[in-house]
Design a protein around this nucleic acid. Structure first.
Lengths: 229, 229
DNA sequence: TTATAAAATTAAGTAAGCTTAAAATATGAC
DNA sequence: GTCATATTTTAAGCTTACTTAATTTTATAA
């Protein structure tokens, strides 16, 4: 019914929808690493299967059936990630790529088994919420990009965008890991490089990096902070 | 390089080779549930990739490269089976089908991780040997089919052919499980139905069933047996 | 508002992996 | 050795999912 390829389209669409609010074909092509015409082609087919609403030259949207299916793909992906990380002890930076393949070839029964074994986790190892078997996302704390945080505010690192192994390894090496507190000290104007403190250390963070880190529990008073507004 | 479909051909070829000593195209078609011409087609392509030696109207053979690749497929399959059974506690009769899919979509690194986690097992949950990372099979006890066992001999149930869930569930329900001792009492002549004792109980076993159960440690003296030759 | 750039589509073609129907080759019983 | 049957191959055709090149549509900015 839904091939591996279709599942990849649905998953990528879901992520783009969440990040950008809409899904342009070009972005899909980029995300999936295929040509534009291939995307047009497939979206027409997905339209016929009632998974998306496709009209030429417009951003594409899920039907409710499509969104449901996408949720299941995301669910399988994130449960695999969590399982690989917690049970297999597979390296944090590698679970995403591995799950990318496994998500297509496991039965629902296995997914549900692993979910139960993990005691119905709400978050994957990157801080992404795991949809329930009914496609419902757990309630989440409000989050903002580190890039958008106000000066001298602090918060808890709560999610990082799924990304290259290089990026994730860099974060680990710098001690920028989920659950830690981080305070924004300074923002350089010309290139948006940030100065932060984490573990009582000052660090420089590129704007690209800051675009992919998400913070919750923001406050303007830190342990050693002063109120600024 | 080797698609999921190719891996399925290699895996099926390996199993047939082991059971029948040679691989006829028809049997392959049956095992893979596809048409004859599709098999001819694929085997020609596998020939071009130097994975098999194909000549028209003859049984097909592995090249050494092909056998190597087949071993890796079998290895991945059996490590997944063992992992699902031991770690996930997935039902015994279901691990084969699940592994059938997962074997195609896991990295070597993950397979090796799981293997280490399982402490380098030699056998999968059905008693099949697991090839090492170098493609070497562990040394095994000599085995014969239950169907071929001599009257009044007994032995240890050591392997069952991978088969339908129905078959495996039947075995479990009857208490015919790996590691148990079993003694052959009687063989009905006209249909080869066997009478056996297991756990001190007498049971009737169809010849088809007996063809798919393998025994080791055969002896002609049982706990309550009398010598017959 | 019009030129230009960006985004999307159409057109033509490819490879993998299937199918069924018909033809060719092997096998095995007599 | 020959004939019937089983096995395998050829032939023709299909679907999925991609490609590049050329064209069309939409968006942007002077």
């Amino acid at each position: 019914m839904t091939s591996e390829s279709i599942e990849n389209y649905l998953g990528a669409m879901y992520r783009l929808q969440n990040e950008a609010g809409e899904v342009k074909l070009n972005q899909l092509a980029d995300a999936l690493n295929i040509s534009g015409p291939a995307v047009t082609d497939m979206l027409k087919r997905l339209g016929q299967k009632d998974l998306v609403v496709y009209s030429p030259y417009k951003p594409v949207k899920f039907t409710s059936l499509g969104e449901q299916k996408a949720m299941q793909v995301i669910r399988r992906h994130r449960i695999w990630e969590k399982f690989l990380f917690e049970v297999v002890k597979f390296p944090w930076e590698k679970v995403h790529e591995e799950a990318e393949r496994l998500e297509h070839s496991s039965s629902d029964e296995l997914i549900n088994y692993m979910e139960a074994m993990l005691d119905f986790p709400e978050l994957d190892p990157h801080g992404n919420p795991i949809p329930s078997i009914n496609g419902v996302l757990p309630r989440q704390n409000a989050m903002i990009k580190l890039a958008d945080m106000n000066l001298l505010h602090s918060g808890i690192i709560s999610r990082v965008n799924e990304h290259s192994q290089e990026f994730l390894m860099y974060l680990m090496a710098e001690g920028i890991t989920l659950g830690k507190e981080l305070r924004l000290i300074e923002r350089r104007n010309f290139d948006n490089t940030l100065t932060i403190t984490i573990d009582n250390q000052e660090k420089q963070i590129s704007s690209m990096t800051a675009e992919n880190i998400f913070m919750s529990n923001i406050s303007n008073g830190g342990r050693d902070g002063k109120i600024t507004e």
